[in-house]
Simulated scan of single mutants.
Amino acid sequence: MTCAAFAAVAIAHGGAHQKPLQVDPDADWATRHMAEEHHIGNFDPTSFFTLHDYDDNGFWDKSEILKTYGMTDPSAKDTPQEKKDEIIREIMKLMDTNNNGIVEKEEWTAFTQERKGTLPDFQTGPGHHWDMEMEYEIHHWEKYHDENTKEEDLIHPEDIEHFRLHDEMEDEAERVAKLDKMSIVEQNIPAKFRKDV
């Protein structure tokens, strides 16, 4: 990792440093999710719904449910499709009372407030749904590092993987920048139009 890259990352992570919230191990899944993923310890069902209505259209579709449970995060790449199907099936069975394939805000409200329901724990973790930086921040940096962390302290496998990804992104950005400067990119010319074929 370059010194400039470390400095940028250290500033970014050091500036937002916050210790994780402590949560009762017997807390329901939504409470643990809000504490671990959002650093929110006090919330109501309406705010939970709104926060996870990613496109702000008043309902959760299947992709939003999977995202909330972390099934679209790279860490879930080995989760079998059957497990993802189970999550959708169970959530719809609990809340989709009009059987239209989505969970509307009114259905959520009826489930959480009238029927006193809670989101099930499918044993898939806290529900990662941030970008690479934020996931590293909240699940690693905050637990093991702080604003006094030096480059030589970043020795955990999570640190090494995080900065490897930074290096890959930097290399890709440099490659694209070089291609952008070229007036003709030979690799982009179809073979049938090349003279050397």
Rank of each mutant, 00 (worst) to 15 (best):
Q81T: 07
G14W: 02
A12G: 04
V9H: 00
A35Y: 03
W130Y: 01
R194M: 08
V197E: 04
D153K: 05
E107F: 03
G125R: 05
D28P: 02
H38D: 07
D96F: 04
R194H: 04
R194Q: 10
N100D: 15
F59W: 11
H156I: 10
N148Y: 01
D196Q: 11
E158G: 01
T109C: 09
E82K: 08
L179T: 03
D24A: 07
D78E: 10
F48D: 04
H139A: 08
A191E: 05
K116M: 13
A76D: 06
E37S: 07
T50D: 12
T118H: 15
T72A: 02
A30T: 13
D24Y: 03
D26E: 14
I160R: 15
M92L: 15
L165G: 12
K181T: 12
A191G: 13
F43G: 06
D28E: 12
E64S: 03
M169I: 11
F163K: 13
E161K: 09
T50M: 10
G14N: 01
A7N: 01
T79S: 08
K83W: 01
K62V: 02
H33Q: 00
E104I: 08
D44P: 07
E114S: 05
A110D: 13
D26Y: 07
T124S: 12
E174K: 11
